[in-house]
Design a protein around this nucleic acid. Structure first.
Lengths: 334, 334
DNA sequence: CTGAAAGCGCTTACAG
DNA sequence: CTGAAAGCGCTTACAG
């Protein structure tokens, strides 16, 4: 029932080889022959079977993408960036998550072994870097989207952003509006991005002559709850603060809530800055000043880098960095 | 270099047919032969090539998913639900969006024609229902996730939710807390869900003896801005209202903002209810009472329905409805 | 410029 | 219980 290359060949009275040539624009063909074949293709509505083409060519024109979860606030942006680029180049995107734990990774590993896709885009699920590195060293083309600034050993091509300078920009802004006593709610200490953001922020304050005490830096975990808890704890400890720098937007939302619950105003009494610039940040009450991570651009860059690799373009030397940019909104200015 | 079924066969001194049998557990084999083959498979780390299996079997074990955009607030939930189910059954998910307009659809159509996947999950991009219906009638197995309650002609199996009764629940709650003058900010009038939600909400108020005037129903477009605009307009018109029912959470966020900007309090002066229950709803200030749409469950159900169809299970009669549930939070109670 | 044939790496009747 | 052979639907040397 489904029509094949043989049907086209028969009807156009040429060989399958010739049909294949007009399909792929390879070899010199007589223009009239080509036209005849094209007419038959249109007439029959023939489209080559992806399955057969994949086997014959030894590739799939599909890129895999492995992400920890699809429900993180900024994940949609990364995915959209990657899909847009891949789709424009007629590649498909096969999606994998780790939502079901080890079983998910087993499933994923099986697909890798079966060569279900030509290359991989990955936002590293925590604890899988060794495994990912192994896959890379075995020859699986891949590009890492390093949301955590982990410096993956340097072997795997990586797209990153500027955690250090993004945080420094936030510090400069807070200093500029006269805030000298910031509280910091960090991400998990084991993440590179946490180290970078803490560092970038603190060093600017230190240089300005307002070093931040250890007591003012509280370890969080990127949840709304950790932001609220941090503020409550600071208040309970009697810490003075006129600003809060959070390592992500969700915790900043929690911070705003706890501050308002304590009867203080944002930004009048306490200015609040987040990190990420998730879609909700602009719509929050008050709109959140935050360090914009270029998630969509990172997704696009990762996809472009991988495709370029397929075409033989040497992968850019290690890291590609797309700068994060500070965005001012009402949570830091009246 | 990559090892094939022929390598395994040679090393185990059996035919490729026999290797294939132990791989797929088909036919009676001598247990000792099977054991020997399995040993060789393990030893060589052999995994059958997905490309070859796909061609030989005439299927791909891949499901396509077409969505309008990946950056909508609830999209991650639907995707995660679908991916979890597919992955557990060793299916892959090939992702398509319409972000680049007609060109996206052309690309998608090419993949369909090439039979790159066995079936399709679709959240209908606006204006593509005819095309989708055509694909279905041509034999592409598919399940629609009908976020807009459009009653797709009845031919395509569909997963939906209870827009009418969800809105009715919201109305009962507002009546229960003594709100008799609600404002309604709807979605686009052309959507079925808008009609259902307006209807479900209004009928409860009418039955309770508090019919809603047309002036109190304002057409929105699911954006934050439309919510804020609706409230400002209502105030400008001098309309009295003690509650606002919004057809989605984003517009409810805009409503809260405009109400507070006008110097009124939520929920004391005006109670606010949304629809969707996107992840941010619980973290909003104040936390938003809203009608929870079971997006993840809908994604799961869609995937399960499609897989069941592959196994020959007859598709459930038309619509599968997963109820929406009203969720009370601080935006409607002090 | 064009075609016959082998090959991609499996699965599946068909025989024995 | 096991294997030889054909077939899935293309692409790609190799010849002419």
């Amino acid at each position: 029932m489904p029509i094949t290359i043989a049907d086209v060949a028969a009807r156009a009275k040429v060989s399958k080889t010739t049909v294949s040539r007009v399909l792929n624009g390879k070899g010199e063909l007589d223009e009239s022959t080509a036209a005849r074949v094209r007419a038959v293709i249109d007439e029959l509505g023939y489209v080559p079977s992806a399955r057969a083409v994949n086997l014959a060519r030894g590739r799939t024109r599909v890129v895999g993408m492995l992400v920890p979860s699809l429900t993180w606030p900024w994940m949609g942006e990364v995915l959209q960036g990657a899909v847009d680029v891949l789709e424009a180049e007629e590649y498909g995107l096969l999606l994998f998550t780790c939502n079901r734990g080890d079983d998910s990774m087993r499933q994923f590993g099986a697909q890798v072994a079966a060569k279900s896709f030509d290359g991989l885009l990955v936002i590293e699920p925590e604890g899988t870097l060794d495994y990912i590195t192994t896959l890379h060293s075995r020859g699986l083309p891949m590009v890492l989207i390093d949301d955590r600034d982990q410096l993956s050993g340097g072997q795997i091509p990586t797209i990153g952003t500027t955690n250090h300078s993004g945080a420094a920009d936030a510090a400069r802004h807070l200093l500029a509006i006269g805030r000298h006593k910031p509280l910091v709610i960090t991400g998990p200490a084991r993440f590179g991005c946490t180290v970078q953001r803490t560092d970038g922020f603190s060093s600017v304050y230190a240089e300005a002559g307002h070093p931040i005490s250890d007591a003012h830096v509280m370890t969080g975990d990127f949840t709304v709850a950790c932001g609220a808890d941090g503020v409550k704890q600071a208040i309970a400890l009697g810490l003075e603060f006129d600003a809060v720098f959070c390592h992500n937007d969700l915790s900043a939302f929690g911070v705003v809530q706890a501050i308002q619950d304590s009867g203080r105003r944002v930004p009048d009494d306490v200015a609040v800055v987040g990190f990420d610039d998730i879609p909700m940040a602009a719509h929050h009450q008050p709109p959140l000043s935050t360090v914009h991570q270029p998630m969509r651009e990172m997704g696009e860059a990762a996809a472009r880098t991988l495709l370029a690799h397929f075409d033989g373009t040497p992968v850019p030397n290690r890291q590609t960095i797309i700068p994060a940019t500070f965005t001012v909104r009402a949570s830091t200015q009246a």
